[in-house]
Design a binder for these strands. Structure first.
Lengths: 216, 216
DNA sequence: AACCGTTTCAAACGAGTGCTTAAGTCTATC
DNA sequence: GATAGACTTAAGCACTCGTTTGAAACGGTT
């Protein structure tokens, strides 16, 4: 555990907020776990909401770099770029090394729009959307950014986010061992192939490809 | 408003729970809006959790029929069935006639697994998955239900759910008027085409198809 | 009318909430 | 060693929480 109380509070509170929600957690519970006094929250963060904001900022500052301004090797084809984009996104969403509450907390904030939601979308989501748009432009040249451009992007991102948002459901549907057999590489492979085929770039999903996925 | 207090409480509480979450709503606030006494909750539902459970059951009982055991016209091709499946799902998720809190409440329950989550998945989600699996079997015959079967299904459902789960984000990204230009028919068209193309059934998404979507 | 179970009511209970306060401890500077 | 500022502490503030209580009101049956 960190040495200074301030970061310890953020770590403990962040996880609690992510799991139980803002209102379901008391500062006494947080401070007890963090080994701090109840007044520490108000001293360091002003009030409970201030602590919550600090947790959110901390979670955002720890996100994976380079999703918005990716630096591709020159040898990459458009398809390679799309694969890399999907892989990075999956890694960010499903990465088990980083504390899970980072993603969960940001998720809560995005699903329940608040004052900081718009700012977060503009600084974090839109650059990603722009990067994906440029990849799509290469795969599938078109003059202007239309409604269809959005929908294609949403179709790709929606596939990725499903595995983050619906994890509990997947776990129950597939069973625990079935869920564990899903790897980032396997999912990247599937989603990339599925999307490229939909865009007419690459072969459609077929039974013949099944071997490669199952060997993961 | 309904005449008897019990249903009035469910309606008021259900909306409040969906918007603000279980812990953020007080029974005094609920009862005031419902024109009931604070003791009514404990009398009719035992305790606050009992009221929450009643809201959830009510929301589930009002869901769209036939998503699990669809009755298709005999003339339907497999592609038609897939389109109908996607359309029904989009309608259920984005239907603005039915109170919005029904979907929102079920969503909260699924993203934050509790004791009733498993039961809900088995009775509600798995039949849907089975129905989709049978459609996929027709489009794309394969011997057994494999990991790939799941992933293809998730790719389709993930596209649909995106528009429910990420509505606030979409609204900000596309702007208000851009968001309003998304119709159930347009989305159905896009997702069906995208998915069929990915499965090698139907033409890939192309610029030429753009006209049809924009005219919605 | 008397009695019944059912339902509604105002009032209050104890526990817990976020937050403040004033006194205390520590560390570094002069 | 005194002083100042940063930080921690225990106690307590006013308040809201979910829940309980006992009485009153209701509608139907005997």
């Amino acid at each position: 555990m960190a040495e200074d109380i301030k970061t310890r509070l953020i770590e403990v509170a962040g996880e609690a907020f992510a799991v139980k929600g803002f209102d379901a957690v008391g500062i006494r519970e947080i401070c007890h776990k963090a080994g701090a006094n109840v007044a520490a929250v108000n001293y360091h963060f002003g009030d409970k909401r201030g602590l919550y904001r600090a947790c959110l900022e901390h979670a955002q500052s720890c996100r994976v770099e380079g999703l918005d301004r990716p630096a591709w090797p020159e040898s990459y084809t458009p398809a390679d770029k799309l694969r890399a984009f999907i892989q990075r996104m999956l890694e960010e969403k499903l990465n088990t090394e980083r504390p899970a509450w980072h993603q969960e907390l940001m998720l809560r904030e995005l699903s329940r729009p608040s004052e900081s939601c718009r700012e977060f979308v503009e600084s974090y989501i839109r650059p990603m959307a722009h990067a994906l748009g440029e990849i799509m432009q290469e795969i599938y040249p078109h003059r202007e950014w239309t409604q269809q451009t959005w929908m294609i992007g949403f179709s790709i991102v929606g596939q990725v986010l499903f595995y983050q948002l619906q994890q509990p459901v997947i776990r129950i549907l597939m069973g625990e061992e079935g869920f564990k057999s899903l790897t980032v590489d396997g999912l990247t492979d599937h989603i990339t192939r599925f999307s490229l085929a939909a865009l007419g770039n690459g072969d459609p999903i077929s039974v013949d490809l099944q071997r490669e996925i199952e060997t993961n």
